[in-house]
Simulated scan of single mutants.
Amino acid sequence: MAPSSNRIALVDDYLPYRRELAALLEENGSFSVTIEAVHGQDLIRQLSPGYLPDLVLLDVCMPVMDGLATARWLATHYPQLRILILSTEDDPAILRRLLDSGVMGYVSKKASYEELWTALESVQAGNCYFPEPIREIVLRYRQNP
């Protein structure tokens, strides 16, 4: 099994889902969940400039500081962080605002294990990941912002 070299911050307010996803990520051996946060402010409190995660898995709908505000804050303060949205939200207006905030991908919470892994590996490698039909929304927006 490969060493856990990809550090992930997992930001989601629903504890059972967050714990299950953290266990799944750790089980694979390619990822290490170094931060679990319930909202954006919780994530910000836990970030350490000398030991940042490689990737942030970020829910959109959370109390206190939602995913959009968190993505904007991260883009301003830590633009090198790769952000993958993990949500059931697929409203084109929200997706456009997330794209403006620098997120590199989106995967549905209902996605298969394989799709989640494809998204994680793609974003970790510095590429974008948007599944159909989200990809169509992204392409239309990039053509006509």
Rank of each mutant, 00 (worst) to 15 (best):
L99S: 14
R19S: 13
R45W: 03
D54N: 12
L86F: 15
C61K: 01
Y141R: 08
L120R: 02
R97E: 08
S87V: 09
C128Q: 14
L52P: 12
I8E: 01
Q46S: 09
E89I: 11
L86T: 14
V107G: 02
A119L: 02
G29S: 07
L58R: 09
L116A: 01
L81Y: 12
L24N: 07
E89Y: 06
L55R: 13
L74P: 02
S32W: 00
P16R: 15
S32F: 01
P79N: 04
A125H: 08
C128E: 13
P145F: 09
L116C: 03
T76L: 07
G50L: 08
R96E: 08
N28E: 11
V138I: 14
S87L: 07
H39R: 12
G40K: 02
V107S: 04
A71N: 06
Y51G: 11
S48G: 10
I83G: 08
R97G: 00
S122Y: 05
L15C: 11
D90I: 02
A93P: 06
A75Y: 02
L95F: 07
S87Y: 12
A71S: 13
A23S: 09
R7G: 13
M1V: 09
E36S: 12
Y129P: 10
D66M: 00
D42C: 08
Y129G: 11
A71G: 06
N144A: 11
A37P: 13
A75M: 02
K109D: 02
A2Q: 06
P53W: 10
L84V: 07
E26D: 14
M62T: 00
R7Y: 12
Y78G: 08
D90E: 09
L55Y: 15
